[in-house]
Amino acid sequence: MKVEHLTHTVVNRALYRKRQKTIERVFADTKEKHGMHWTRYQGLKKTTLQAILTFIALNLKKLAN
C-alpha cells in the first residue's frame, strides 16, 4: 500500500493509541455491555432506532460520570 509507511511514524502511533482508548472503546462497550453485537429487530428503521437509543444511553452515562 502507498500509505503503509505512514502508520509507523511516531505521531501516528501516538494518535492510534489515543484512538484505542477513546473512540474504539465506545464501540467495544456498545457491543459488550449494551447488546449491539446483534440487532434485536429487523428492518433499517427499527435497527437505527435501537442504535440511536443505545448511544443516547451511553451519552447519558458519560454525563452522569
Rank of each mutant, 00 (worst) to 15 (best):
L6S: 01
Y16D: 13
R13L: 13
A28P: 11
H34Q: 10
K31W: 00
A64D: 00
G43V: 01
V11Y: 08
V3C: 11
E32W: 10
L6C: 10
R19A: 09
R17V: 08
K31M: 15
R40Y: 04
L15S: 01
T9V: 06
K31L: 07
V3H: 15
R17Y: 12
T47P: 07
K18I: 03
V3K: 14
L53Q: 01
I52F: 10
H5A: 05
R25H: 02
T22L: 08
G35T: 09
R17G: 08
V3P: 06
K46A: 09
L63T: 10
A64G: 06
H5L: 04
F55G: 04
L63I: 15
T22Q: 03
K46N: 04
Q20K: 11
I52E: 13
H8S: 15
K61Q: 11
L58V: 14
Q50W: 01
L60M: 04
E32L: 14
N12G: 01
L53W: 11
F55S: 01
K61P: 06
T39N: 08
I56K: 04
Y41N: 00
K33N: 13
Y41A: 05
E24L: 10
E24H: 14
Y16A: 15
G43I: 05
K31H: 03
A64T: 06
M1C: 11
M36R: 11
R19F: 14
A64E: 05
A57W: 06
N59C: 04
F27M: 02
L53M: 10
N65I: 09
L63W: 05
T47C: 15
A28N: 12
L60H: 01
V3F: 07
T7N: 09
K2E: 09
R19V: 11
K33M: 01
L53T: 03
K33P: 08
L49I: 13
L58Q: 03
R17Q: 15
F55E: 00
A64F: 08
R25Q: 07
V3N: 15
V3G: 15
I23Y: 03
R40C: 13
Y41D: 05
V10R: 05
K61I: 10
N59M: 08
A57F: 07
T9N: 06
W38C: 04
G43A: 04
V26N: 11
M1L: 09
H5T: 05
I56E: 08
D29Y: 03
L53Y: 00
R17M: 14
K62R: 12
T47H: 03
Y16E: 14
V3D: 15
T7Q: 12
N12C: 02
L53K: 05
